[in-house]
């Protein structure tokens, strides 16, 4: 080994007097963010690719089908054209047979936005090292998140069961509700995209609930208090806001447009 090399040579002293903080020694932090938070951002970016792929596929497939032309009041379900979302999603649990377009999905959207607010309140409490407040806001977030998933379960079961009238299919039979192969609302791919997009989002909400429950237990046990910071709550918060963000897009592209 050459004598000009640095501290790794046997001849030099075994201990470093100072930590190596030069740019090429890894001493530079251009993003000024912790490793964990940075990795959460990159994970969320990759997750955004997946959701963008779903929504892009939705856009392509939808425009490759015929659109319904004519008065919205006279709209009837048919496999010949893409359905109008507010005619498909017009049921509200407890109001059987009443036409309430998009009311239930509006409620779900509000619940999820509100859970995002309680999450950011938990993060804020964590930055103040306020254990009781973190617990309180995490519990609220878990409650709203669980309510959202339950609402989605109701939405799915109604979509699968369908309306009493059903729709007359090409072979003359009456079909109610939806499965992956056919549905009463429109082309088969409409049902498939509904199941895959909202299902994938629901899976994310469920994973978030597991993380939140775990972080609530860890907060209660004082794990973060001992660690000296609540960065784990911040990281889970990033994930939770991302799930809310995805819903904002799903809501627009699936239910409004």
């Amino acid at each position: 080994m050459s004598t000009t090399s640095t501290t790794q040579t046997l001849s030099s002293s075994a201990t470093l007097e100072k930590p190596r903080t030069g740019t090429w020694d890894g001493g530079n932090e251009p993003f000024k963010a912790s490793y964990g938070k940075l990795m959460m951002w990159f994970f969320l970016l990759s997750d955004a690719f997946t959701f963008a792929a779903f929504l892009t596929a939705y856009g392509l497939i939808r425009h490759r089908h015929l659109a319904y032309v004519g008065d919205a009041k006279e709209f009837v379900f048919s496999t010949a054209y893409w359905p109008i979302p507010e005619k498909v999603f017009n049921a509200f649990p407890g109001f059987h047979g009443v036409d309430l377009p998009l009311a239930f999905v509006a409620l779900m959207t509000m619940i999820l936005i509100f859970s995002s607010v309680t999450m950011v309140l938990a993060v804020e409490a964590g930055q103040r090292m306020d254990k009781a407040d973190v617990q309180k806001w995490l519990l609220w977030t878990i409650l709203f998140g669980a309510t959202f998933v339950s609402c989605q379960a109701l939405e799915w079961s109604h979509f699968i069961e369908g309306t009493e009238a059903g729709t007359k299919m090409a072979d003359g039979s009456i079909f109610h509700g939806a499965n992956l192969a056919m549905n009463q609302y429109g082309p088969p791919l409409f049902g498939d995209l509904f199941f895959f997009i909202t299902g994938f989002h629901g899976t994310h909400v469920f994973s978030g609930l597991c993380l939140l429950t775990w972080s609530f237990i860890a907060t209660t046990n004082g794990t973060f208090e001992k660690r000296g910071h609540y960065e784990m709550v911040e990281k889970i918060g990033l994930y939770w806001h991302f799930v809310d963000l995805v819903w904002v897009f799903v809501f627009t592209f699936f239910y409004l447009v």
Binding site: W41, A48, T56, L60, H63, R64
Partner: peptide, 24 residues
């Protein structure tokens, strides 16, 4: 780092939606 890939995705979305109408 976050915004540039997202902007490219929006481009992809617009491109494939117009591709969809061409296929239709």
């Amino acid at each position: 780092t976050i915004l540039v890939p997202m902007a490219l995705l929006v481009w992809l979305l617009v491109a494939l939606v117009s591709e969809g109408s061409s296929i239709g």
